[in-house]
């Protein structure tokens, strides 16, 4: 499109300066400066205070709760999302369009509404909770409840990430595998899965990152018992309500680093996958 030897770049399509200015200005004001303020503010604490703050037993327990429930929920969504994407791409059946159309519901439905609805469904007298109560399992106000709320939030990520890749997958490989005598299961795990793995991983990590930070749907169903069902965003919220901004900021910084780490791992997986093909 343009001559990269030229030091002074000029584009055929006009408007570069205007759009560059607007986009960088906007991102600077809305994203870069706010995040810098966050980082700067956490410097108000000394290093030792910072460490003591982010590793206090109650905070540490909240990382465990947040990470374990978000990971389990994203794993469930990876399996179910792959299955749903498969069903939507490969099979023809009545109600298929409806099934395809409702996948984005968790994006469209406010999380607080999902939260109170799921809570009421899963308390021991609720429509679903009653079934679990027979087996002596309580769902609402436990980690299982948190996981269920996070599964709800994460449904669209894996489906929508795997679906287009599955659609583009050429049938030749599978046919070749079948001709050579591979069983359907063998074909799936050795031919199809490697092809769609990058998209599956991308969906998984996006769901994971979203679930770790999720607040609205979880706060109602979690019960918020310290050390047990208290998620990290809730701890930040509690610190803010006590006007303990320094602690809130330091914990937020740890969460932010965790999100960046997830993004980073996903980027590496995607780059390696792109190199292989």
């Amino acid at each position: 499109m343009n001559n990269s030897n030229n030091k002074k770049k000029s584009y055929v399509i006009p408007g570069f300066r205007l759009s560059f200015g607007i986009v960088t200005g906007f991102l600077g004001l809305f994203v870069v400066i706010p995040l810098c303020v966050l980082a700067l503010y956490s410097l108000e604490l000394s290093f030792d205070e910072f460490i003591a703050n982010v590793t206090s037993p109650r905070v540490f327990a909240s990382y465990r709760t947040s990470i374990s429930t978000a990971f389990t929920a994203s794993l469930v969504n990876a399996v179910m999302g792959l299955m749903i994407a498969w069903v939507l791409v490969r099979y023809r059946f009545p109600g298929k369009r409806l099934m395809d159309g409702m996948i984005e519901l968790p994006f469209a439905l406010p999380t607080a509404v999902a939260g109170i609805a799921l809570t009421h469904l899963t308390v021991t007298e609720g429509w679903i909770g009653r079934i679990f109560a027979k087996f002596g399992v309580s769902v609402a106000y436990t980690r299982i409840g948190i996981t269920i709320a996070l599964i709800f939030i994460g449904i669209p990520f894996v489906v929508r990430s795997v679906q287009p890749v599955l659609e583009k997958l050429e049938p030749e490989f599978e046919e070749a595998a079948a001709t050579l005598g591979a069983s359907p299961a063998y074909t799936f795990f050795h031919v199809i899965l490697p092809e769609i793995f990058p998209s599956l991983f991308a969906g998984f990590s996006m769901a994971f990152a979203r679930c770790i930070g999720e607040y609205g749907s979880v706060v109602f169903i979690a019960g918020n018992t310290p050390y047990e069902t208290e998620i990290t965003p809730l701890i930040i919220m509690a610190k803010l309500q006590e006007f303990d901004y320094a602690s809130a900021t330091s914990i937020a910084l740890v969460m932010l680093l965790l999100s960046f780490f997830i993004l980073f791992v996903n980027a590496i997986v995607q780059i390696r996958a792109a190199k292989l093909t």
Binding site: V31, R210, Y215, M255, S259
Partner: peptide, 27 residues
């Protein structure tokens, strides 16, 4: 720029609120 544009997707809403609180709040 592309990464910065997508960044808000992976930031917890609580943190999104917090950064503006720090920017414009009493302190």
């Amino acid at each position: 720029l592309a990464a910065l544009t997508d960044l808000p997707l992976s930031i917890s809403p609580i943190i999104a609120g917090l950064v503006f609180l720090l920017m414009f709040g009493r302190q």
